[in-house]
Design a protein around this nucleic acid. Structure first.
Lengths: 124, 124
DNA sequence: CAGGATCCAGGGGGATACTG
DNA sequence: CAGTATCCCCCTGGATCCTG
């Protein structure tokens, strides 16, 4: 990474900051992670909701729509009754997953120490 | 990563989700990144503010305090007039930085395609 | 089943003024 | 210089009800 790139990252309307902001919301990374970790190629709406017990229907919907807009997944509607909709990660999302897993593994290794540090500060 | 860890990640009060949530706010990653990329070992409050032009004093303060609580940086106050305070990344933060840079590089490689996808959807 | 529509609170975060 | 203290807006996201 050269100096130009580094400096542009700090610019207010930097596209990198913009992209990271969109996937740094409450649910996006978790939805991508869930679509990947199950091993299933495609997942339905209800399946996702079962896997992420505490997400609301609304937030699952808007998260899926945003991820679709940014090209992280495809949404396929089957004209059946009852309706069937399947979500599938794109190659773009798959190329992001190693980085997500890297973060998760890091958090896993450091969670005990971090939580312990928080206690020390708040009880000081 | 075994199955137990994967499943625990999806649990609502999962510590991993908790840790990622704290650094996924608007400024934390950018502050850590800035403290690292300058090459300076320590940085003062004003220096950070100059490097991140659009952060407010309040948000820089609370971000730094949160990062200190979680052990990402140390805050050293020198009893001088005028006051001098220096911020320095901890080894924990340094171990996180490769993952942040991984994300940034990924965003850099994909930003054009993502932004292009967004336009297509919104103008459809 | 897969959502759309609406209402609403809570909190993140900005602007401004003040201080040791 | 390095913050603190307020005020306040807005937007995220939850709860609820409704539909093809």
């Amino acid at each position: 990474m050269d100096r130009t790139i580094i400096e542009s990252t700090l610019f207010p309307d930097c596209p990198i900051r913009n992209i990271l902001a969109r996937i740094s919301d409450k649910w996006s990374l978790l939805v991508i992670y869930t679509l990947d970790k199950t091993g299933k190629e495609k997942m339905r709406f209800k399946e996702l909701q079962r896997e992420i017990p505490d997400i609301s229907q609304k937030m699952l919907t808007v998260t899926l729509r945003t991820l679709e807009e940014d090209g992280y997944l495809t949404r396929t509607v089957y004209p059946e009754v009852p309706p069937r909709v399947e979500y599938k990660l794109t190659p773009r999302a798959h190329s992001l997953i190693p980085h997500i897993n890297g973060l998760i593994e890091w958090a896993l290794e450091n969670k005990d120490a971090i939580i312990n540090d928080r206690k020390k500060t708040s009880c000081a």
